[in-house]
Design a protein around this nucleic acid. Structure first.
Lengths: 141, 141
DNA sequence: TTCCAATTAACAATCATTGAAGATTGGTGC
DNA sequence: GCACCAATCTTCAATGATTGTTAATTGGAA
């Protein structure tokens, strides 16, 4: 994702308004590697601007995703997550607490299958699932 | 997933009751490679037994998943899906219609990363996303 | 046939997300 | 600076998937 300053310019260039709410959301996302949910961003934003609605957060998050500045993730943790990291990378998901971490692994050795039925593969996702140390200890086993 | 007959024995052996509802659900799942949602199974089941509730379908599906006879999938298509195919395989998901297909690809060349933070990886999922022929045509591009 | 724990159906409730509508406000043009 | 209008905001209702609760029903062992 671009920096808040660059996003401001980008929004203006597209005829979109740069509201204080949006700027606050930009800041909450910038450099955020926690794969936040809309709810998480909303909490962070309302700490600074208590009146911002969850609806506005969803709206802006989707706007950014549509512009390609964010990637929306559905990793089966119950709610959508937003990733400002646009570099090629994979995700590690804890089955216990749902936390998501980044990893960079070379997935090029996976040969993309070709399908007789004309399915066109756009992208290959690799997800590593397991338990973080804390959840591993908590769950026993 | 085991056959309906084997599941009947398995349930009895575990002190669980084998009701007509459950047997009907077993049959709906047996050999089903469509990665059905609970809703889809419910439709199939009510065609035969109109009074079976969606709640019962969810319950039985989760019971089977807990017993390891089904794998619950969350592929970001809006609702959970259930896969009776217990062989190692991967999924192909259409971004347009949400349909899910199976593929077998060798994922062994992916080296499971080791983490300094003690994260223990249990399994590696590979998902191919794109569009089936019909959705590809419909979306243009 | 009896009996009880397991199961069921019905219904309310939850959670994440989206739709709608009226009030507010960036920011361009004067 | 000021007016104006489309873009944006908040509020609140609605949706869809899933789960909790409870009272009634029913497998299947004794």
């Amino acid at each position: 994702m671009k920096s808040p300053t660059e996003l401001t310019e980008l929004f203006r260039a597209q005829g979109l308004k740069v509201t204080p709410q949006r700027q606050c959301i930009f800041r909450a996302l910038h450099g955020n590697d926690r794969h936040p949910t809309a709810e998480a961003i909303h909490e962070q934003v309302t700490a600074e601007m208590p009146t911002v609605s969850l609806r506005t957060v969803y709206q802006t998050l989707h706007d950014l995703a549509d512009m390609g500045e964010l990637v929306e993730l559905d990793l089966g943790t119950g709610s959508g997550r937003f990733d400002p990291n646009l570099e090629p990378h994979q995700h590690v998901v804890c089955d216990g607490c749902g936390r998501v971490y980044d990893v960079v692994v070379d997935v090029s050795p996976i040969r993309t299958p070709r399908f007789a039925n004309g399915f066109r593969v756009d992208r290959t996702e690799v997800v590593f699932r397991g338990r973080c140390r804390a959840c591993s200890a908590a769950a026993g086993s």
